[in-house]
Design a binder for these strands. Structure first.
Lengths: 225, 225
DNA sequence: CTACACCGAGAGCACTGCTCTCGAACTGAC
DNA sequence: GTCAGTTCGAGAGCAGTGCTCTCGGTGTAG
């Protein structure tokens, strides 16, 4: 059982993360100030270093939490009983909705990596959650026989064994080409949301919501859902 | 004719931009320090403010220059005499190649917007250059009759008139749905390159080059090239 | 009860963007 | 050619940052 000290330590760590996330939501990752977090909590800036050895470590924690809440949103939006194309669209919508609700967090996850920062391995499992959801939609569709037969050919595999496990697993109607299309589709989802969020489509669209749905449907068609 | 003072002012401005771009390439936009630029040029930091009113203005200049060199690379890669699908692939390859050669500049253009920074209108024409190239490929294909006939239907237009002008212009075989697919394809190009550059595909691919070509070919098929 | 690990606070360092002021240099009008 | 007016570079200075170190006070394990 945890001692009183460990308990209060966890508690304060949580308060720091919470304050940091608030600040992240307000001013963005680049302007996130460890001193401001300390001020908000009424403690000396140096005290924060007892909990996070550096600003980057605090950011890492926020990144992991961000991937987790985004992944949870995607999982919650997926109804395994629905048809594949609807599942795909629902998950895409959930990701977009989360991105709109947490733009700075989304930018932290999928925007430019921060200066000298290299994502530590801890972030990988959390980052994979959304991919796992989309991969499961693909795999379920394959197992249900809802996917077109692969055309075959195409040379050596482009998708690694690790990625195969995420992208629906092994199945006769899932070949390397189908998985390449799945990776492309996922990249396109990300590109679409980022373009919209980062302002690259300003003035080009009359209705962002309808455009997104139509674009995601095109992608579903592309991967055969 | 420019006076001597104006000439030396332009010259020094150019040196500042050059030094800033060097630093941008090394440490990235977030760590770009105006004082370090001044040090590299052997001048006082306050002197730089005679040329750029703020760090953000210097960044804006770098953004415009970045869009311009990227746009020039895309234009140079486009051979109007080649078949549409080849033109599309060539331009995509050029964009990816530029991104790999200038990762920090690419991140500045297409990654998360910097903190409190809002892209000024000056950047818009430069930013549109790549889109114009891809739009021309689409328009030329339409005028050559190389595009499938539109299926029709789909409700009110999703693409604005401004964007229509960029995306190949008006043509019977280019309807709103085709332009939506074009926007989606361009977003997908960006998403693919960003995923690769920002490390989101690490461990998923055996051959990034071949994957990119295959993915871009799928996109060309999607938009009917 | 005591020795020890832990923790908060404060001072301080090196750095940042940015402002202000003060001479020096250049420029255009007379 | 002189002289006012503009431009420019340099320096000092302010407020802010990440981070380190040291110094007491406090909870904890033996």
């Amino acid at each position: 059982m945890p001692t009183a000290r460990e308990r209060v330590r966890l508690e304060i760590t949580g308060e720091i993360v919470e304050a940091a996330r608030r600040q992240l939501a307000e001013v963005g990752a680049a302007a996130l100030s460890l001193r401001a977090v300390a001020r908000e909590l009424g403690m000396a800036s140096s005290a924060v270093y007892r909990y996070f050895p550096s600003r980057d470590d605090l950011l890492t924690r926020l990144i992991i939490d961000g991937y987790d809440t985004l992944g949870a949103a995607a999982e919650a939006a997926d109804d395994p009983a629905a048809p594949p194309a609807e599942r795909w669209l629902a998950v895409c919508r959930a990701v977009r909705s989360w991105a709109h609700g947490h733009p700075h967090e989304y930018a932290l996850l999928y925007g430019s990596p921060v200066p000298g920062y290299a994502a530590p391995p801890d972030t990988v499992p959390a980052a994979a959650r959304v991919g796992v959801v989309l991969g499961r939609v693909l795999g379920d569709a394959a197992r249900a026989g809802a996917l077109p037969e692969p055309a075959g050919g195409g040379g050596p595999a482009l998708v690694t064994a690790e990625a195969v496990a995420v992208l629906g697993g092994e199945h006769p109607s899932l070949d390397d080409a189908a998985r390449v299309r799945a990776l492309l589709a996922w990249s396109a989802v990300y590109g679409t949301i980022s373009f919209e969020l980062f302002g690259h489509l300003v003035g080009s669209l009359t209705d962002g919501d309808r455009y997104f749905d139509r674009a995601m449907s095109e992608l579903a068609r592309l991967i055969g859902l």
